[in-house]
């Protein structure tokens, strides 16, 4: 698969002139200063940049956790800025999956129950939930560990559970915020390989924030942020 073939796909995500300002007056900080970004279906984008460059803010906006101060964010033709808090929650529930740096699994709760959580909010009946969750855990290579609580799993395994939780609903986009930030190199590569495989096999669009070039190298496209602006946006030649 070449980089050019991706650009033909229709845009899932469109950012136009997005700015984000925290605070007001002299204390105001401009986290984003006018971003234009298009992400097509099936893409695997790595967002890079130094801390304070606005990459996390951008991911929060893309993840509908936050709204732009100005500019528009269109997700599958819907303008997110016009949605209220509950509507954005429903959008996340039905179209987005999240993977966090710190895994954010419910402690003292088995892996399978963690994976079931998004389905609970979707109102899926218990039996169906269980079956879906089991399949998602198999997809991340954790079959046989369903009953383990997070504290009985290694960091890499915990992040796999988190990925299973993010994909169990079959989301349109998976948002990953430094998914390998807490893992050693070997585990990090395993997680990245898993994400690449999910992108290739299931066609899940993935947007990932990372500051490690090694991990960004797995992406099809790398976006660099500096001072709240997109400094570069390149197809990744070394993409595997």
């Amino acid at each position: 698969m070449t980089a050019t073939s991706q650009t033909d796909k229709r845009s899932l995500i469109e950012l136009r002139g997005v700015t984000k300002v925290y605070g007001a007056g002299h204390a105001a900080t401009h986290a984003l200063r006018g971003i234009d970004l298009d992400i097509g279906e099936g893409d695997l984008v790595a967002v890079m940049g130094p801390s304070g460059s606005g990459k996390s803010t951008c991911l929060n906006i893309l993840g509908c956790l936050d709204t732009p101060t100005a500019g528009t964010y269109t997700f599958q033709g819907v303008e997110v800025g016009q949605l209220d808090r509950d509507q954005r929650a429903r959008l996340r529930r039905h179209y987005l999956g999240f993977v966090f740096q710190g895994y954010n699994l419910l402690s003292r709760t088995s892996a399978i129950e963690n994976v079931e959580l998004p389905l609970v909010y979707r109102g899926v009946p218990a039996r169906t939930r269980r079956a879906h969750a089991r399949r998602a855990l198999e997809a991340v290579g954790l079959q046989g560990r369903e009953k383990h609580a997070p504290n009985e799993l290694s960091g890499g395994e915990q992040q796999r559970v988190a990925i299973a939780r993010a994909i169990v609903t079959g989301p349109a986009v998976l948002m990953a915020d430094e998914p390998t930030g807490n893992l050693d190199t070997a585990r990090s590569h395993e997680i990245m390989q898993l994400l690449v495989e999910l992108n290739r096999r299931e066609g899940i669009t993935i947007v990932m924030v990372t500051h490690e070039p090694d991990m960004a190298a797995y992406a099809k496209r790398i976006v660099h942020f500096v001072d709240g602006l997109v400094e570069s946006d390149k197809r990744n030649g070394s993409h595997i």
Binding site: A89, R92, L117
Partner: peptide, 10 residues
């Protein structure tokens, strides 16, 4: 936070 992020309503 996790629950809200994955789509729990207020």
């Amino acid at each position: 936070g996790t629950r809200l992020a994955i789509g729990a309503l207020e």
